[in-house]
Computed example of a mutant assay.
Amino acid sequence: MIKVSAGTAHVLGLKQLKTDAPPTTAYLMAGEKCSRSCGFCPQGRDSQSRSDLLSRVTWPGFQMQEVVPRIAAAFQSGEIKRTCLQVVNSREAWLHTREMIAELTRQTDVPICLSCTRMDMARLEEMLAAGVERIGLPLDVANPELYSQIKGGSWSEQLAFIEAAARTFPGRISTHLIVGLGEREEEICQLLQRFTDQGITVALFAFTPVPGTALADRPPPPLAQYRRIQAAHWLIKNKLVRVEQMIFTASGRLVYLGAREQLRQWLACGRAFQTSGCPDCNRPYYNEKPGGIMYNYPRPLTEAEREQELAFLFSSLKTEPKEEEQCSGA
């Protein structure tokens, strides 16, 4: 059996679903009930959530021989542009993952991404040699103390491994950062710069409370906070502004990104507010409910949406910095 995200199952003709934004990546999941116990994850060891959830998305199961040919056909038609394997950290999941990669590479040339919170360098090398194009090694939590509380283990060790992997396999490593876990905005922006400087692709997520998880009662981040981080990410990864030029309050809130007219020119396309991460990954409604707050747009924004989001972003930023506020790193 392969677990397939509900949106992917719809695109592949395995499930009927009403959606205005079909996924452009086929999302598959290997395994169930991780050996770790991340406080935000329904698949965590201690989670009481439904076993078919990852974030707020359901993942029904189908036979591999039914799924892979449909992915091959959808890739050929252009409906699907890549496949992403979400690997739960368990021995059985890795055995299943090897089988899925072998079948995918045998039947199609679709680019394959793989994401797993725990991996050693030998396994990483094995997966890349087997045909995986990119590997995601999530950091998730931007603050070391919060990392220990929410995910367990060592923040510095995970960060060091991500950076070592990027040096060993340049251009093939991604990571995840979740906004809204109690971190300072300055901490995330500094990491965005650090990862970008090392060629590590970052996917931003808004914290999503899921019933049955340890953090189920924590609210998602304010939209204004998320928009500021999205804008900073876009400017950093496009080498338009560095974190050292940004200004934060003493409490770490981002308040200044640059002159208003220059920002409007750089952000006018609206892509800063779309899903970030690997190419062609749009993750529809991973952090959102249809009709609710749109943290990551899974499609290009309309002109009205672009103007609305820019106005909203600018309302939470200062036009000019004040004396009591300092540039990051000053």
Rank of each mutant, 00 (worst) to 15 (best):
M246R: 08
P221D: 00
A216E: 15
E324S: 04
Y297T: 00
A74P: 11
L204V: 11
T83M: 13
H233W: 13
A160D: 14
N89L: 03
L301A: 01
P69R: 07
T249A: 03
V241R: 15
P22N: 04
M119F: 02
I80N: 05
E125Q: 04
V141S: 01
L139G: 03
Y295M: 05
G277Q: 12
T175Q: 09
V255T: 13
R227T: 02
R45N: 14
A122L: 07
F205N: 10
Y226G: 00
V141N: 00
P138G: 12
V57T: 15
F205T: 06
A216T: 11
E183Q: 00
L137F: 10
Q149G: 07
E303T: 10
T275L: 08
G252N: 02
K289N: 12
I247R: 11
T249H: 03
N238I: 11
Y256P: 05
L204P: 14
H96A: 09
D52Q: 09
M246D: 04
Q245R: 09
Q158M: 08
E187Y: 01
C38I: 09
I101G: 13
I71S: 06
P219Q: 03
Y27G: 04
M100G: 04
R70I: 00
F248A: 00
Q262I: 04
M64A: 14
C281L: 11
Y295K: 01
E32G: 04
E307A: 13
E323L: 11
F169P: 01
A330F: 05
E244P: 00
D20F: 07
E309S: 04
M127V: 14
K237M: 12
H233N: 09
V255M: 13
G329P: 10
F273T: 07
Q262R: 07
K3F: 13
R194L: 14
R253P: 11
G182Y: 00
I229R: 02
P222L: 00
I173F: 02
R56K: 09
L124A: 08
C41Q: 07
W266N: 05
P298I: 07
D52T: 12
K3R: 15
F62I: 10
S47Y: 09
T108I: 12
L215C: 08
G180H: 01
I150S: 06
A268T: 09
N282I: 06
N143C: 04
R98E: 13
C189Y: 03
R45Y: 15
K33W: 11
S5N: 08
P211F: 03
Q43S: 13
A311G: 12
T58W: 06
